[in-house]
Design a binder for these strands. Structure first.
Lengths: 231, 231
DNA sequence: ACCTGAACACCGTTCAAGT
DNA sequence: ACCTGAACACCGTTCAAGT
């Protein structure tokens, strides 16, 4: 019954979102416009609006895809581990999520810009909370823990500064050189911290070593707060 | 010598940035366009480009103004307090910065989007580092501490979700209702955490109580990491 | 040196029309 | 039901020209 002339697959929300992820993987966030996305799908820009309400909806959908990959990645971890080692269970979950981000290094920027209740994100947080509850946290302390961990539960650390792009302008380095003599502590810190290792990295500071170390400091501090409160 | 016909003050970077802050204070971030900003200054849009290189430069300038206010606010604190009570000194500094944000509640969003080395931000971090160093942190551990504290050193907590705007659509609440039975822990947490108090607030979760509590958990965890390492 | 007006090259999005 | 083409209402920014 199907015409053999055109085997075009009909558009769907899922195809739109996956295509958006592929486009950004290949060409960066700047390439994501409604026109470019439509082109990649072999369709006119306005056809997209039958499946998404706006470009904001596309960005939400991108997060749904990425965090969906995280949910897949954590689905075969053992939830009962949290009963007697919640920091270990959390660490395992978060590092699995981080591996997804290493395949989509632009994703933290998009995730940070979204505050809508995206189903995959909500489910991911539910799993984080489950670990904290099994580990003995009250709802109230678990809430504080979520905020203290921040983006780290999704596998990335916020950057403070971004280095200048290799080919771009040198505004940052120039600013820093001019101010350097008023900044003894920053100069000292930057010279003692390795910022050009070959380590797997999501950003200037966010390499695997820094991420794991900072995560462990937080998990330890939170476990201490928990045990102090539950007596 | 000066003509009395027009007492127009010449444009300057400082006037452009301050005017941008005033515009956003009055009408929100969405109102900030080069054309609107020029209008507020009684000038054509293109005149702005003699003083700033781009709209990105205006946003950097806004952060310079806001964090400049923070530097003023912390300038009369006693640096030597960190010598025997670094968590107290940090707490004092951070809460002073937060008071600036309470006057500009849109500012966290702008600050989060900037990664350039803005002079005021660099100086602010220098002061944060000075406290950690006086408190006995190695450069390496101070670096981890900065990332662990994240946006908190500038006085705000990242939100996880934003509630629906009062007049806006109800997409978030709708999503949540549909998923609620699969989310026992989130439902439990949200019902036990106060999200509609009259407290001074920067966001849904970021009220003064949550901010101070979460800050203290982190400061305590960091002090523990420090004392464990220095023996 | 500083500011302007018109224009350019994009955006996201609306709308009426096609099939 | 789904897709289209043209148009709208904006953007940020360039450029040649004014004073």
């Amino acid at each position: 019954m199907a015409s053999t002339a055109s085997t075009r697959v009909p558009l769907s929300r899922e195809r739109v979102f996956q295509s958006a992820v592929d486009l950004v993987d290949a060409e960066g966030l700047g390439a994501l416009t409604m026109r470019r996305l439509a082109e990649a799908l072999g369709v006119e820009a306005m056809s997209l609006y039958h499946h998404v309400s706006s470009k904001e909806g596309v960005l939400d959908g991108i997060v749904e895809v990425i965090v969906g990959e995280m949910l897949d990645a954590v689905s075969d971890l053992d939830p009962s581990r949290a009963d007697d080692d919640w920091p270990g269970a959390m660490r395992e979950r978060v590092l699995a999520a981080r591996e997804v981000l290493l395949r989509h290094p632009w994703a933290p920027e998009v995730i940070e810009s979204r505050r809508a209740m995206i189903p995959a994100v909500v489910h991911y947080y539910e799993g984080v909370l489950a670990i904290l509850r099994r580990g003995g946290f009250s709802y109230d302390l678990a809430h504080h823990a979520l905020h203290a961990l921040g983006s780290r539960v999704l596998g990335f650390t916020q950057e403070l500064f971004e280095p200048d792009t290799p080919e771009g302008d040198e505004a940052n380095e120039e600013t820093f050189r001019q101010l350097a003599e008023q900044l003894p502590n920053l100069v000292g810190m930057l010279s003692s911290v390795n910022h050009d290792g070959e380590d797997t990295t999501l950003g200037w500071c966010d390499d695997q070593t820094e991420f794991e170390f900072g995560l462990d400091v937080l998990l330890d501090g939170l476990e201490r707060a928990r045990s102090r409160r539950s007596g």
